[in-house]
Design a protein around this nucleic acid. Structure first.
Length: 427
DNA sequence: TCTGGGGTCCTAGGACCC
DNA sequence: TCTGGGGTCCTAGGACCC
């Protein structure tokens, strides 16, 4: 059996942890630049605040009902996420925990099968809440896709289920699938959902599970669709179980806080993003040989639908893969100079690292003199200090200090758990 | 006026090779 | 009169996830 543990309204819960007076009050958390709403408390959902909708559109509703609103505080969320995942690792063993996202983890429950699954689920939920203060929902079923279905049902009816749903018999699975609209199935997005409903009159997960795998192959993304249907039927598929350990691409991209016209600002931003991407690279003990940079100019929008402008990008392949920040910054900034056009207004830039290989087996190049690996120790030292603070305390000079392009974060709460000077005080 | 920032996988089609 | 077939690698684009 497999389980998914999912934090309830994670970012909102993190904010509430230090503001207990907000329990049972509507709360929302905004994306970078305070652009979109990315987390809503149950109360905010009930008021009709739209998920992933732009903040400015929801503002009248938010002000009318006095919804508590926060900018994203990733230092806080990252630290609490780490605590939740550690708790799961203590409970089930690190090998049985697959962190899927900041607020979700899959659990392998083989070896725990003999115990009562319901009890196990309740125990997990209670322990995580006791140790971290974060409420979670648990879905348990034979496959990952079905455990997601179980988790949805747990969240939909928190009172009755106590946030734990187990699908361990054919009858329970059939009933659960019958109650689940097709668009709520993990792996069915907007495109497939409307095709299924309006094209083929498929409305529930149960109906979807009865379709042939050939149908899945033809209309739901090839082998992806085949896996989806099999998993819904309770047949685990190997590919979906494979844990992703090292990333094949690492990106850091941001909208600017305000539009930028000065190449110096873009150079600084790209240098900063490169530092961040290189850190991610070193965290997974990898090196990269390809650096890509893109910029996005601001464009007039005439359509009523929101569209991102085109990315104008370019990339360069280095003779040798590296994970050193300074070796990656140089080509990245060079690419900015190639791409930048005087007189244009830019709203976003990004850096992507690819051609990723393990750091230990970097292919050496005959024509590049072998370097002493003294940069590595420096990098590790910087990473350790910055990680302990969950922020950049140390950075490269090319990242700049003026930061005209930096994000807006007007409503951010204190970094309670990672900064001494922002510790929570008890009166 | 104001719409995030990561990632993944898959397919199709073109270039190129033998 | 006759004009293969199979393989690899790369890129772009589409779909999905949180």
């Amino acid at each position: 059996m497999k389980a998914i543990v999912d934090c309830n309204n994670f970012y909102c819960s993190c904010e509430r942890l230090f503001k207990p007076h907000l329990d049972h009050q509507p709360v929302v958390v905004l994306s970078n630049n305070d652009g979109c709403i990315i987390s809503r408390s149950d109360e905010a959902k009930k008021l009709g605040v739209a998920m992933a909708g732009p903040y400015f559109k929801a503002k009248p509703l938010i002000e009318k009902y006095n919804v508590a609103t926060f900018s994203s505080n990733y230092n806080l969320y990252g630290d609490l996420s780490w605590r939740v995942m550690e708790t799961l690792r203590v409970l089930l063993g690190a090998n049985n925990v697959e962190v899927y996202s900041v607020d979700e983890a899959f659990l392998n429950l083989e070896g725990f099968e003999k115990e009562n699954m319901e009890e196990l689920g309740l125990h997990i939920r209670k322990t995580v809440e006791d140790w971290t203060g974060i409420k979670v929902s648990v879905g348990i079923a034979p496959t990952k896709v079905l455990s997601k279905v179980a988790n949805h049902l747990a969240k939909k009816n928190k009172q009755a289920t106590q946030c734990v749903v187990v699908l361990d018999t054919k009858e329970k699975i059939t009933e659960a699938l019958h109650k689940t609209p097709v668009e709520e199935v993990w792996g069915v997005g907007g495109q497939y959902a409307s095709k299924l409903k309006y094209g083929w009159n498929i409305h529930t997960a149960l109906e979807l599970s009865t379709l042939s795998t050939e149908f899945g192959h033809k209309f739901l993304g090839g082998v992806v669709g085949v896996r989806l249907i099999k998993e819904l039927r309770g047949e685990p598929t190997k590919e979906i179980d494979k844990q992703l350990t090292t990333k094949k691409m690492i990106a850091t991209t941001r909208m600017f806080g305000s539009p930028v016209t000065d190449i110096a600002d873009i150079r600084e931003a790209v240098a900063t993003y490169t530092s961040r991407a290189a850190e991610k690279l070193r965290r997974q003990f990898s090196a990269a040989d390809t650096v890509s940079v893109f910029v996005v100019p601001k464009e007039e929008s005439h359509s009523t639908y929101f569209r991102h402008g085109p990315n104008i990008g370019s990339s360069v392949t280095l003779p040798v893969a590296t994970s050193s920040t300074h070796e990656l910054i140089k080509p990245a900034v060079q690419l900015v100079d190639d791409l930048f056009e005087d007189g244009r207004i830019y709203k976003k830039a990004g850096v992507m690292l690819s051609g990723i290989v393990p750091d230990t087996s970097i292919q050496s190049d005959l024509f590049v003199p072998e370097k002493k690996n003294n940069g590595r120790m420096l990098m590790e030292m910087i990473d350790n200090i910055n990680f302990s603070q969950r922020d950049d305390v140390l950075k490269f000079a090319s990242s700049g200090t003026t930061r005209d392009w930096k994000m807006r974060m007007e409503l951010r709460s204190p970094r309670y758990t990672t900064r001494w000077e922002e510790l929570f005080t008890v009166k």
